[in-house]
Design a binder for these strands. Structure first.
Lengths: 234, 234
DNA sequence: AATGTTATGTTTGGATCCAAAGTAGAGCTC
DNA sequence: GAGCTCTACTTTGGATCCAAACATAACATT
């Protein structure tokens, strides 16, 4: 997958994420290849990849169409990430933290503390949090004993709204995001505490709940209604 | 994906599953295309699909290699299926069973009861069980409110050892498999009971445990040692 | 003798060509 | 006027060709 092949996949992924192609819209190989300025071959390859990622789906025998996601899909994708990261955390607690991992987690905890210590959020802090958050999650998932869990999470994260670093949405209302990140920080610290004490079930549940932070916590923190509060009907 | 394209993917998947290519072996596009009697194009498309499925992985800049799986990977993949199916079951219990789904699950419960009623297993019963088992799991996962969970499970099941219908391994020792299926049947019935009573947490845990049946239960049932008993070290 | 450089061969990526399958539209028949 | 059929066009799949990148090996130089 040279630069161009990879770039076609990510460029298409970006375009779909931005809504450049409406949900359910059919994507023709020729049309896309002309738009991206490449031949049909890399586009065909990219379509197969994006199909597996779940962003495209087959439109009968006539190529691919953009997959459309409902609110329930978004909620479910977040929940899937929650249970998978929870699984990783539980395994980690059960097998015991290595000294190296313990130290690494401590770094990201401290980084978060320092980031939030001044009591408010600046523009560049958002990226810094995103960074440390990614490292924190990757450290846990990557140490779960097998890449299989991480792979499953990575595949799930291809749905743009499911990824862990989609926490911070509103980079303009920094004062409101601050309280959210404070809570996330507490959750991070609790997770590490549970991991250190070998409390597998607790670590799992904390991690699960932590996944919802971008989704359900808005209302509680006075950030406007989130998704997923309505009682799911049958 | 016409017959040929699809067939290349599934033929390759089969060949890899059978171990025709050793773990870690590099797969050249030309070599494979000659072996399968097609041109390079469908092989290149298939490689991308199989990469996403996790059966192949990139070998640097030089094409793809067969991914190798450790015992820990197998265990983890089964555990991943467990938590995902557990998630589906919990959601189902929380939102309540529809009448149609209740009836369908009852069908598969009854089918299983009748299959095991005679007290022993015949050769053709293995396929019958595999069939009803698949229907049972698909019914639950497919009714979880969003295809996202099912997709995640499907992707996980691309690892051949992770799928739910890989329960019955030894189709020659039918008497030993019988006790395993008896237990699986009980677990199915307990899951349905929990679902009907809206016991989300119980349904989730039962479903999780059920995933292990092909893996850890061999020893308990006198079928020889299974995988995953050893205490995982750090 | 060891190391750096060059040249050749192997392999993947991209573009184009051809064939096959499907769809839509027009025309014909009942 | 409705329905069927045949034709033309659109679109995807497969094969082949060309270019670029990488690896290996041979050769030259210090």
């Amino acid at each position: 997958m040279s630069n161009s092949d990879k770039s076609v996949v990510s460029r298409l992924r970006k375009l779909i994420g931005e809504g450049a192609y409406g949900p359910g819209e059919r994507l023709g190989e020729v049309a896309v290849s002309e738009q991206l300025g490449v031949s049909r071959t890399p586009v065909r390859l990219a379509f197969r990849t994006l199909e597996q990622e779940g962003l495209l789906q087959r439109a009968g025998k006539r190529g691919f169409m953009v997959r459309e996601f409902t609110e329930a899909d978004v909620f479910c994708a977040v929940e899937v990430r929650g249970v998978l990261e929870g699984l990783a955390a539980r395994r980690l607690a059960e097998q015991g933290l290595s000294q190296a991992l313990d130290a690494e987690l401590e770094v990201w905890i401290q980084t978060g503390r320092e980031l939030l210590a001044k009591g408010f959020l600046e523009e560049r802090d958002v990226d810094a949090w995103s960074e440390l958050n990614r490292h924190f999650h990757e450290a846990i998932v990557g140490s779960a004993g097998s890449p299989v869990i991480g792979d499953a999470i990575a595949r799930n994260n291809h749905l743009p709204f499911a990824a862990a670093d989609s926490i911070v949405i509103d980079s303009e209302a920094l004062d409101r995001e601050f309280r959210k990140l404070q809570l996330a920080q507490v959750q991070h610290e609790l997770v590490v505490q549970a991991l250190r004490q070998g409390e597998g079930a607790r670590a799992e549940m904390l991690m699960r709940e932590h996944a919802f932070i971008g989704l359900r916590y808005g209302e509680l923190l006075g950030l406007g209604p989130g998704i997923g509060h309505e009682r799911r009907g049958r």
